[in-house]
Write a protein that binds this DNA or RNA. Structure first.
Length: 604
DNA sequence: TCGGTCATTG
C-alpha cells in the first residue's frame, strides 16, 4: 500500500512542498536510532538508591520516560525503599504520569502515598490531584480539593489557581476562568506567564481570538514577557480563525523580540497555511524549520497527511508517510485514520478496508474514529448492513459508540430512505449513554423533513425546544425548509418572524429558504419583498438566493421579472447555477421562449 | 516536586 521509500519519492515530496534546496542526504537519519533506555537494566545497574533516584530524576526531566508501565515500575520500586524517597521525588514522577494523561492512576497513586506509605500530603501533591480531576472534567471536585486544602491549612499557590483556571477552560467555561483569575488577583496572588497562558489558551479554544490577543497585550502592559508558548497559542487561534497572515505577523513580532519559533509554532503555522491552500508558503516554512534545526515530528507530519488527504492529494499524503518512515516514525492511528476517512469519502470502501486491515496487521489498534469513518463510508454508499455489522464489531471489541458514531448512523438511515428507523435510533441512543447534540438534532430533523414526515419532525422539534438544548439558526432553518417543502407557508412565515424574539440572528440561509418557499408557490411579491429588504436587516443575499428566486419566476413564466433579476445577478457578479441554466434552456426550447434569455446563457 | 501551545470521525 505504501510507496517504496526512495530518494525519488522524497524528492517529489520536497518539490511538492516548495522545498528544493535541501539535499535528501542531509536528513538526520541517526535520529531514528534513538530508543528509550531500558529501565530495568538501568535499575539493576544502579543498585545504589541515590543513583537510582538520580537516574529517575534525569529520565523524568529529559522527557525520555514516556511509558506508563515504566513509570509505575519506578513508583513501586520507590514505594519499597526504606527510608522512602522524598515527597519531591514522588511528585516529580506524578507530574510525568499526569503528562501521560493517566489521570485516574495519578489520583490513586497519591491516595496510596498518603494511606499506605504514610507520606504527608502537601500543596504540590494536592495540585496533582486537582489537575487530574480537571483533566477528567471534574472541575467541581477540583474546587472541593481546594476547600480541603484550606481546611488542612495548606496555602494554595498560583499553580493551584492556574490548574483550576485551566480546568474551567477545558470545560469551555472561559467566563468563569476569567473571573477566577480576577478573584485570585484580588486575594493577593499575582498571575504569571503560565497563568496568562492558560487563560489565553482557553479563550482561543472558544474562538475568542481577539480577546486572547487583548490578554496578550494586557500581560505585556503588566510587564510580563509572553514566551513562545503564549505566542504559539495565539498564533494557533488566529490560524484556526482564518487569520493566517496575522499569525505570521505575530511570529515576526515574536522573532524580533529574540524568541525563536519552536516545533509547535511551526506546526500551527504550517497547518494554518495548508488549510487555506497556501501549499507553497507551507513548504517554505517546513524548509525554514528544518534548516534551523527543528525536525517535524509525527504530529506535524500527520497534520500534513491529513490536510493532503482532505484535499484529495492521496499520492502526496503517501509521500509524507514515506518521509515519516524514513525519519524513523511509524505511522500511527492518526495517520491511518486520515487515509481511511479519505477513501470513505471517495466511496472507495475496498481501499478503506484495506488500510484498516493494514493498520491492524502493523500492530496499530483501530480506535472509535477508524470505526466511525468506515461506518460513514458504508452509509454513504447506502450499505446499511455493512455499517451495522461494523457497529456490532466495534462494540464486540470493546468500544462504546459515541455521539459522532450515532449521528453518522442516524444520517445513514435517513439517506437510505429510512427516516423512521433513524428516529428510533435517535430516541434510543440515550439508553446507551449518548446524548444527542445539535448536529444529531439537525440530522434527524432534516431526514424526517426530506422524508415527507413533517409532523414527525415537528413533534421532535417541539420536544427539543422544551429541552435544555440551545437550538441555533441551523435547526430553525431545517424546520423552515421542511414547512416550506410541505406547503405550510403560513406556519413557516410565523416561525421565521418569531426568530428575532428568540434571540436568533436570521442569516442568508434562512432568508434563502423563505424566498425559495414563496417562489415555489408563486408568491413572488412576498419573495421579492424579502429579497429587497434582507440587506437592510444586515444580511447580504448570495448567489443561491437569486437563483432560487429566478427559478420560481421561470417556472411560472414570469418573463419580465426573470430578466430583471437575471440582469441584477449579472451586475452583481453572481453566476447562474446549473438548475437555473437548465430551466432557461428548456424555456428557450419552447415556442414561448424569449430570445432575450440567450445572453444569460452565454455571457460575453 | 505541581500549572499552559500543534493531529483524525458526523
Amino acid at each position: 500500500m505504501l510507496p517504496r521509500i526512495t530518494y525519488l519519492s522524497l524528492f517529489r515530496l520536497l518539490h511538492f512542498m516548495g522545498t528544493t534546496k535541501i539535499s535528501p542526504l542531509s536528513f538526520p537519519l541517526h535520529s531514528l536510532c534513538t530508543k528509550s533506555t531500558n529501565i530495568n537494566n538501568e535499575i539493576q545497574s544502579h543498585s545504589n538508591k541515590t543513583h537510582f533516584l538520580n537516574s529517575m530524576r534525569n529520565l523524568c526531566k529529559s522527557g525520555k520516560l514516556n511509558n506508563i508501565d515504566k513509570a509505575l515500575n519506578f513508583f513501586h520500586i520507590m514505594a519499597k525503599m526504606n527510608p522512602l524517597p522524598s515527597v519531591e521525588d514522588f511528585t516529580l514522577l506524578l507530574g510525568l504520569i499526569v503528562k501521560m494523561k493517566h489521570y485516574t492512576t495519578a489520583i490513586s497513586l497519591v491516595k496510596e502515598m498518603h494511606s499506605s506509605l504514610g507520606i504527608k500530603m502537601d500543596t504540590f501533591t494536592l495540585n496533582v490531584v486537582i489537575n487530574s480531576l480537571c483533566h477528567l472534567k471534574l472541575v467541581a471536585f477540583g474546587f472541593s480539593v481546594l476547600g480541603t486544602m484550606f481546611k488542612l491549612g495548606f496555602e494554595p499557590s498560583v499553580v493551584t489557581f492556574t490548574t483550576l483556571v485551566n480546568g474551567l477552560c477545558v470545560k469551555g467555561d472561559v467566563g468563569r476562568a476569567v473571573e477566577l483569575v480576577d478573584h485570585m488577583e484580588k486575594m493577593g496572588y499575582r498571575s504569571d506567564v503560565k497563568a496568562y497562558g492558560v487563560l489565553i489558551n482557553g479563550l482561543c479554544k472558544m474562538g475568542e481570538t481577539s480577546e486572547a490577543v487583548g490578554w496578550l497585550r494586557k500581560m505585556e502592559e503588566r510587564n510580563w514577557k509572553p514566551n513562545v508558548v503564549v505566542y504559539s497559542t495565539v498564533m494557533d487561534g488566529l490560524c484556526k480563525d482564518g487569520l493566517v497572515s496575522e499569525a505570521l505577523g505575530l511570529c515576526l513580532e515574536m522573532s524580533s523580540k529574540g524568541i525563536r519559533p519552536n516545533l509547535v509554532t511551526y506546526t500551527c503555522l504550517i497547518q494554518g497555511l495548508c488549510n487555506f491552500g497556501s501549499w507553497k508558503e507551507a513548504g517554505l516554512l517546513l524548509d525554514e524549520m528544518m534548516k534551523t534545526g527543528t525536525m517535524p515530528d509525527l504530529q506535524t507530519l500527520n497534520i500534513l497527511v491529513d490536510v493532503l488527504c482532505k484535499e484529495g492529494k492521496i499520492m502526496q499524503a503517501k509521500s509524507v508517510i514515506g518521509f515519516m518512515i524514513l525519519t524513523g516514525e511509524a505511522p500511527d492511528v492518526f495517520t491511518y485514520n486520515s487515509l481511511i476517512d479519505r477513501y470513505c469519502l471517495q466511496n472507495q470502501m475496498n481501499e478503506a478496508t484495506r488500510v484498516f486491515e493494514l493498520m491492524v496487521s502493523r500492530g496499530c489498534l483501530p480506535d472509535i474514529v477508524a470505526y466511525t469513518s468506515l461506518i460513514h463510508g458504508w452509509c454513504k454508499i447506502k450499505n446499511i448492513n455493512k455499517a451495522m455489522q461494523l457497529l456490532d464489531e466495534m462494540v464486540k471489541v470493546g468500544f462504546t459508540p459515541d455521539v459522532v458514531t450515532w449521528t453518522t448512523l442516524i444520517s445513514g438511515f435517513c439517506q437510505a430512505g429510512r427516516p423512521l428507523a433513524a428516529k428510533e435510533l435517535f430516541l434510543n441512543m440515550g439508553k446507551y449513554g449518548q446524548v444527542p447534540n445539535l448536529q444529531t438534532c439537525a440530522v434527524i430533523l432534516d431526514g424526517l423533513c426530506k422524508g415527507q414526515l413533517l409532523s414527525e419532525a415537528l413533534s421532535l422539534f417541539h420536544a427539543m425546544e422544551k429541552s435544555k438544548l440551545d437550538l441555533n439558526i441551523v435547526i430553525y432553518s431545517i424546520i423552515l425548509d421542511g414547512m416550506c417543502g410541505a406547503g405550510k407557508l403560513n406556519d413557516a412565515w410565523e416561525l421565521f418572524s418569531s426568530l428575532p424574539s428568540k434571540g436568533l440572528q436570521i442569516n442568508v440561509y434562512a432568508y434563502t429558504i423563505m424566498i425559495n418557499g414563496f417562489s415555489k408557490q408563486g408568491l413572488f411579491d412576498k419573495a421579492e419583498y424579502l429579497l429587497t429588504n434582507m440587506e437592510e436587516n444586515g444580511c447580504m443575499p448570495g448567489s443561491c438566493t437569486y437563483n432560487v428566486f429566478v427559478q420560481g419566476l421561470l417556472t411560472k413564466k414570469e418573463t419580465a421579472r426573470s430578466i430583471k433579476y437575471l440582469t441584477m445577478m449579472r451586475d452583481k457578479g453572481f453566476s447562474v447555477d446549473a438548475t437555473t441554466t437548465e430551466m432557461i434552456i428548456n424555456y428557450l426550447s419552447t415556442d414561448e421562449g424569449d430570445i432575450r434569455f440567450r445572453e444569460f446563457l452565454f455571457p460575453k
